[in-house]
Design a protein around this nucleic acid. Sequence first.
RNA 1: UUUCCAUUUGCG
Length: 242
Amino acid sequence: VFTYNKLLLQLTREHRYDRASAVFQEMIDTKSCQPDAFSFAILLRGLCRSNQLEKARQLFERMKEMGCVPDDAVYNALIGGYCKAKDFNAAFKLLAEMIENNCLPSVVTYTNLIDGLCKAGQTKDAVKLLDEMRKKGCIPNVYTYNAVVEGLCVERKIDEAKKVLEEMAVRGVFPDVVTYNSIIKGLCRSDRVDEARKFLAKMPVAPDVVSYTTVINGLCKSGDLDSASRILVQMSNRGCIP
RNA sequence: UUUCCAUUUGCG
């Protein structure tokens, strides 16, 4: 099984899903070596990522028919797939099923859902889910918050996003460069480039290429090429390569 | 001895 799984993993990494499915079928046919939950997880994840959700669903049914118990990796893969397809009914159904089967949804599970909701423009629901996960004793981490912050910034609700920052501070989750980059992007998009520039100057963590690029982009769009080139110089001085 | 994973820039 180990050997087969390794092969499956490699094949899906190379996006050769047809080949992977064939290998999988071979495992079942030979009967000497039945796929385990991990084999399924690997293949399901590959199918979900390549938008072959229907195939994934069938495989999942088959898995249960074979008496193989889905683990959290399997559920996470499927939930991620449905989120990307914006089929939240299906995603939440799986979440419920997962809990029924005594499979604890992890922070990754929730982050998947929260990120999906945000990307679909449903930040309101995302924030609600964030609250719910906490009530269930699942602690959001920086990835979870970043997904929310990013979602709010895309919707130009910068001030709400800043509130989330405050909440992070209260809960002892430290914003990282990704968090700040989302805010900077939000400010730029809301024509608050000047604030973005100030934010860049005083952010508590070291700005990276993305931070600089975002601000420079904003400045260019607003026609402030002088400031843009100044930032560019500053950026190279700090060893960042555009 | 296999072990999947989630978040940010550039109309990529």
